[in-house]
Write a protein that binds this DNA or RNA. Structure first.
Lengths: 171, 171
DNA sequence: TTGGAAAGTCAACAAGGCTGACATAAACTG
DNA sequence: CAGTTTATGTCAGCCTTGTTGACTTTCCAA
């Protein structure tokens, strides 16, 4: 079913989704959704001695085993001192393994231990469950739009950094 | 155009957007996008003596003038002690006005002063600019999907709370 | 062999969460 | 009217997670 082209001027009706009110709605949705997004893993972490920072580290180590401390630093966007505190705990608790780099022996290559993988899976599954439910209620087309807009919100420099890491580019 | 049924089990091909890998992509997008989402106002706040917590308070007071401390508490999902610290600064600095409720004189009705509205507008515009750019690059259909999925991610109790406040329902 | 990069560590600090305890005023209720 | 509940504010102390600055150790590469 095709609607006839609008009689409004070109900057009119098609751009109603760009009004300040529409933008404000999106902003508030981001705020509330991010809270929901982190709520389930946060509840699990509360019982253990860990916080959201530990979850983030576990998450990215899980899916990029062998990444260096520096790469993780760039992904997380925190200082090495801040990450170090979290990482030290995870290594002490035998959730993360740190081995000397084989090409560059200054580097530390991070990976999860069995226990680390188990905790990560538990946290991840809690988070995925909510996303899975949201995705299936919203449907594939909505999900595509969701991802499209999120990608556009990310800073270009960050997007570059991400794709560099995904390609395994070791510049 | 009908493709013949996939040789996969019935839950197969239509649900590819629900695979763990697709979900993980969405999760990482949420993480990176949220950072982009807050980056611009954060930069402005850095120069002033304020943080993200002040921005959030200003934002919700701006668009719901006359809301009570309790309502703001529920929206933000923090303790009154935490909010109070932020609110006290904003009131001292004459960015937020607090007047005694007319119906219930125990309540404090919050609103922005001229200076508060000016700062809020500055922060808000920085954030909207990024959202506006993302929206226009992604297009209206993507934006609709974006909002749809975000709504689904929010916890039902939170959704209820929000719509109660939007209706001005004073239960 | 030496300069510099990568990594780790220590110290000090700040923002912004939290809990618990308590005070005050106003509203509600029996 | 007395007693209770509600809304708000405040004090004190704690935790997590971020920051900067200074310094050391390791070790690659010119």
């Amino acid at each position: 079913m095709h609607r006839p082209r609008s009689p409004m001027p070109s900057t009119g009706e098609q751009l109603l989704f760009l009004t300040d009110d529409q933008l404000r709605q999106g902003i508030e949705l981001m705020f509330f959704a991010y809270r929901g997004f982190t709520a389930d893993p946060d509840r699990i972490l509360d019982d253990l001695a860990y916080g959201r920072a530990h979850h983030r580290a576990l998450h990215f180590i899980a899916h990029r085993p062998g990444l260096t401390v520096n790469e993780l630093l760039e992904i997380l966007g925190v200082t090495k001192q801040s990450l170090n505190r979290v990482l030290r705990q995870l290594i002490e608790d035998d959730l993360v393994a740190s081995r000397v780099g084989d090409v560059d022996r200054r580097q530390r290559l991070l990976s999860l231990t069995e226990a680390g993988a188990a905790l990560e899976a538990r946290l991840s599954e809690a988070q995925r469950a909510r996303m899975r439910a949201a995705y299936s209620r919203a449907g594939p087309d909505a999900v595509q739009g969701f991802k499209r807009v999120l990608e556009e919100i990310i800073s270009p420099q960050m997007r570059e950094k991400i794709s560099r890491l995904e390609e395994g580019d070791t510049r």
